[in-house]
Structure formats: structure tokens, C-alpha cells
């Protein structure tokens, strides 16, 4: 099991570094990420500008750091709100069943008919560009998945005798949900969430890339990609750096998701 524990340490260390960067970004950043210096434009990588400068002479390293705050921070915010809305909705719908559940399923079906990206683009186009509206649009797309997952877990567990036992023991519905359902839902939801965060990051980046998310001059990885695309032949690093950043963060969260999937399986804990 050396292999496993090493993977775990690697995941934890990278997460710690990521968290550190996210929180301290404004203090680590050597330059003001929005300060334009036309005389310094398109500088290559150097000791002064660790990752060079962009077409407006802004320090790329500082922009990547603060951009992480926007991209990754917004992803977590989206995830958090989606969980907050989706999980209770799914729990209740699955547990209560009947008419409530039927109405809920119709809503979910309506959302599931269209691909995530299409709905997100339409919604944020409708709401208008801007980070807040982007968050709102992606939440509206994402909460459905969590509600469905929570509901399906509840539907499976509800059939089992231990739930009948809990009812016989006089437990209220609220207590049954809290004590018996939530532990089952948590594991599944956490795994989905960590695998999802990568997708959300990609979604924010791509919607920002097409101009629906963060507005200039605010640094955001997708928007940085967009701004850099005109200079790809002269300064390819301007696209490569945010691209690689996105890729690495997504990868880290996917690995974390795999790790959590093993972790939340009680059977793997012992034995």
C-alpha cells in the first residue's frame, strides 16, 4: 500500500500548495496584475517577469496568480451553491416521493435535455456578461446533477430494511434523512463534486474565453487565453501558461476525486 499512501501525500501536498496560492495570491504577486506598461509589452520569461509579460506589458505571473483566485475561487463558489441547492432538493424529493418527486423529475428532465454548455451559454448570454452572471448560469446547470445523485441514493437506500427499522423505532423523517441518508449521500456527492470541479473550471474558462465571464482587465485564465490568441506566433507562452495552469488544476482535482472515491467506501477503510 506504499503506492496508495504516496499518492495520498502527493494529492494533499499539491492541494495545500494550491490553497496557499489561492489565499495569498495578492501578496505573492510581484506586480499589479492590471497595471499596463506598454514599453514592457511581450517580454519573454526573465528574472524580473517570471513568466514574461503580455501584449499590454502586464506581468503574466501576477495575472496567473490572481486569475487563479477568480477561476478556481468561482468554481468553488459554484460548487458550494450547487450542493446547497441540489442536495437538499434531491434528498427531499427522493424521500417524500409522490407528487413532489414527479414534478421535480420533470424539472430535472427539462434541464438534462440540453448539453451543459449550451444551457450555460444561453443563460449567461441572457443574463449578460460578467462574473456574477456566469456563476449564476453555471449553478443553474450544475445543481441538477447533485439533486439527481442525492435522489437516486435516497431511492436505493429507502428500500432497505434498516430504514423500515428506523421508522419502527419512531424516528422522524428529518432524523432518518440526517442519520441514515446523508452519510450515504455525502460520499457519492463528494466524489462527484471533486470530479466536477475540473469541469466547472473548464466551463468558466471556456465561457470567459468567448467573452461571457470575467471582463477585461480582470485577470481570468480563460480570458487570458482569449487575449493571447492574437499573439500566438510571437509569444506562444502567453497561451501555454494559462492553458497549462487550467490543465494542472483540473488534473489535481480529478486525482483527488479518485482518491476520495476509495476513501468513502467504508469497506476499504479496514481489512
Amino acid at each position: 500500500m506504499i503506492h496508495r499512501s504516496r499518492a495520498r501525500i502527493a494529492v494533499i501536498v499539491t492541494l495545500a500548495i494550491l490553497a496557499f496560492i489561492l489565499i495569498l495570491a495578492p501578496y505573492i504577486a510581484p506586480f499589479d496584475p492590471t497595471q499596463v506598461k506598454m514599453e514592457e509589452r511581450l517580454k519573454p520569461i526573465s528574472m524580473e517577469h517570471l513568466l514574461g509579460t503580455d501584449h499590454l506589458g502586464r506581468d503574466v505571473f501576477s495575472r496567473i496568480l490572481t486569475g487563479a483566485q477568480t477561476t478556481v475561487g468561482a468554481s468553488f463558489l459554484i460548487l458550494f451553491i450547487s450542493l446547497l441547492v441540489g442536495v437538499p432538493f434531491g434528498l427531499l424529493s427522493g424521500y417524500l416521493g409522490g407528487k413532489i418527486d414527479r414534478i421535480f423529475m420533470r424539472i430535472v428532465d427539462a434541464f438534462m435535455t440540453f448539453p451543459d454548455y449550451i444551457v450555460a451559454i444561453i443563460l449567461s448570454g441572457f443574463l449578460g456578461p460578467g462574473m456574477f452572471n456566469l456563476v449564476l448560469a453555471i449553478v443553474m446547470v450544475k445543481w441538477v446533477g447533485y439533486a439527481r445523485l442525492a435522489r437516486s441514493v435516497v431511492l436505493t437506500e429507502k428500500q432497505k430494511d434498516y430504514i423500515s427499522m428506523a421508522k419502527i423505532n419512531g424516528m422522524s423523517s428529518l432524523n432518518i434523512l440526517r442519520r441514515h441518508m446523508i452519510p450515504h449521500v455525502t460520499g457519492n456527492v463528494m466524489v462527484l463534486a471533486t470530479l466536477d470541479i475540473g469541469k466547472i473550471i473548464l466551463m468558466i474558462a471556456s465561457l470567459s474565453y468567448i467573452g461571457l465571464g470575467a471582463q477585461p482587465p480582470a485577470p481570468e485564465w480563460g480570458a487570458m487565453l482569449n487575449e493571447a490568441k492574437g499573439f500566438f506566433y510571437n509569444a506562444p507562452q502567453l497561451m501555454l501558461i494559462p492553458g497549462l495552469s487550467i490543465m494542472m488544476v483540473v488534473l489535481i482535482f480529478n486525482l483527488l476525486g479518485d482518491y476520495l472515491r476509495d476513501h468513502f467506501d467504508v469497506k476499504n477503510q479496514k481489512g
Binding site: K160, Y162, I168, G170, R179, H180, P183, H184
Partner: peptide, 22 residues
């Protein structure tokens, strides 16, 4: 509620009668 305190059950499948997470 008071009736609940008078009646208990044992079902066929012992695995399904215990929450695996508890």
C-alpha cells in the same frame, strides 16, 4: 409514537437491516 415503543421487528436479510455506514 407510544405504540412504536411496544413493537419491534426482525427481518429476513440481516445485511439490509443495518446501515453499512454506521
Amino acid at each position: 409514537h407510544p405504540v412504536r415503543s411496544e413493537i419491534q421487528a426482525v427481518f429476513q436479510n440481516p445485511s439490509a437491516s443495518l446501515n453499512p455506514k454506521l
